[in-house]
Every structure is written in C-alpha cells, then in structure tokens.
C-alpha cells in the first residue's frame, strides 16, 4: 500500500539568498510538477510546511522559503550540506498555455511572486512577450526576491517593479501594486487575462482595480493560501465551503473563487 504521508529525501543542490529571511532552496527532483503546485517540506520533530514551487528545471525544483516560525526556522538553521524531506507535489498549479495568446497581466506581491515565478519566466520567453505584463510588489527594496529574474524579465516583457515604501533617494517605483493597473496600456482589457497572487488584502484590491479596468471575472486567476496539515484532502483545515484548497486549488478561476466564503 502506498503511503503518501512518508516524505522522501531531496538533496539541497544550491541555496540562493534573497534577503535575510528569504532563501531559495534548489532541491533535487525529477518528477512531473507545475508552477503554483506546492510541496510539504517536512522537518522531523518540528513539523511540516506547505511551500510553493518557485522554479522548475532539469533535475530540480526551487522552493523559496520565508523564515517565520517553527518549521521554517529549523530549515534555515540546519540546511547546510543537508537534504530536506519533501512530499508532493500537491494542488493543481498554473497551466501556462492558457496565457500564451493575447495580453496577460500578472500581479504578485511579496512571497506571492514564488508561485508565479515560473509563469512570468514562461511569459517572458513567448514570441508575444511584448503583450505580457508583470507587476511585482515588495515591502521595501531590501525585501526584493528573485533579483536576477527581475533583471531578465525587465528585458523581455513589461515589468513594473514597485515597493510599498523606500528610504529617501530610492530611484525606483514606490507605491502599492494596485496603483499601476489603471494606466496599463492594454489594447483590449475585456479579453486580457490576469493572474493575482499575494496577501488577501492585496488580492482583494487588485481585483477591484482589474475589474474597473474592464477585466472579465472569468479571465482572472488567483492562487490562495490556507492553513494546511495534509495536502491530501483529509485534515480539513484548508476547506472553504465545498472546496478543498489543497485538492481543487490553490489556483482558481475567479468565477469560482469569488463565491468562496471562509
């Protein structure tokens, strides 16, 4: 009998430090996986934490982890030269092909950039990358993640990089991601697609702005986070109405997401 609760060891191939609290762990992995899916990172004696796939490549997946508590602290304390235990991948993830035709806008805040990093990279490599927009927001310049990617994306698609606040003399954009939506030079907002990922208030106000701009609900995709203890549809913690975020999500069309009430 298969036991989905038993994690498998995965070697840490590389660690990329973005900020003091946020590192990307490049983990050995060869199975099928999509951006927006997640793994349960398992630290025996401390617990498990669901972490989104932030990158996919030959023989590896990237997990970008923010140090916030019991499990994630322990990952940062003990990772050197180690492997981590994983189980997954879980959830539906993003289908990048849905965003190939026409105009697409990705709006992501903070660690919300992780699950869409693979999507933005794929958009930036499409022939019509000039029709693709990414608005990425971080709390401050020192909270920025994926600096190398941001540079690469800037060259290929329309990137708006912004911070909520910055020390005096900062040359870049300052302001919330919502501020930039009204002015996007879209040809046809009614048929354009959008992906929104970030903290709940950011998602709420971003969707309001997108709809003002003329986006249709069915063209908006969101990714949700909830407390999760299993990732398998058993523990119940992630349930909202008749939906299990871990099984049916975390990626949802807004038409389905808009009726969910915790």
């Amino acid at each position: 009998m298969n036991n989905p609760y038993i994690p498998f060891p995965s070697e840490i191939l590389e660690v990329i430090r973005h900020t003091q609290k946020e590192y990307t762990f490049r983990m050995a992995y060869t199975g099928e996986v999509k951006p927006g899916q997640f793994f349960e990172v398992s630290v025996p004696r401390y617990g498990e934490a669901p972490i989104s796939v932030s990158g996919i490549g030959p023989g590896f997946v990237d997990l970008t982890i923010r140090r916030v508590g019991r499990v994630t602290n322990e990952v940062f304390e003990t990772y050197a030269g180690q492997s981590l235990l994983l189980r997954g991948p879980y959830g539906n993830g993003f289908d990048v092909e849905l965003y190939r035709d026409g105009e697409t806008v990705v709006v992501a805040g903070g660690t919300g950039v992780s699950p869409v990093r693979g999507v933005i990279s794929a958009l930036s490599e499409m022939d019509n990358a000039k029709d693709k927009y990414a608005i990425t927001g971080f709390r401050s310049p020192s909270d920025m993640l994926f600096r190398d990617d941001l540079e690469a994306w800037e060259k290929r698609l329309n990137l708006i990089l912004t911070v909520d606040g910055a020390p005096e003399g900062y040359a870049g954009n300052v302001g919330l991601v919502t501020k930039y939506i009204a002015d996007l030079p879209l040809r046809d907002p009614a048929s354009a697609k959008a992906i929104v990922v970030g903290p709940p208030p950011m998602m709420k106000f971003t969707i309001i702005e997108l709809k003002k701009k003329g986006f249709a609900d069915e063209n908006i995709t969101v990714s949700y986070e909830r407390k999760m203890c299993c990732g398998l549809g058993k523990c119940g913690h992630c349930r909202v109405n008749d939906t299990y975020i871990c099984l049916d999500g975390p990626v949802f069309n807004y038409v389905d997401a808009r009726t969910m009430m915790d």
Binding site: R45, G47, C229, C235, G236
Partner: peptide, 27 residues
C-alpha cells in the same frame, strides 16, 4: 467529523529520535 492536525514530538533535546502524530482537531 474527521479533521486532524499533525503534531511532531521528540523524546529528548539531543536525541534525533521522535515521532509524528495526528491528533483530532476542531473547527
């Protein structure tokens, strides 16, 4: 009702021995 929460415990601070449990949980 079926909900549960995962709970890890270890037997001693220096030992590398412990267990993962699940315990009944309430919404």
């Amino acid at each position: 009702c079926t909900c549960f929460t995962m709970q890890d415990v270890y037997y001693s601070d220096n030992g590398r021995v412990g267990e993962r449990r699940r315990v009944g949980s309430s919404c």
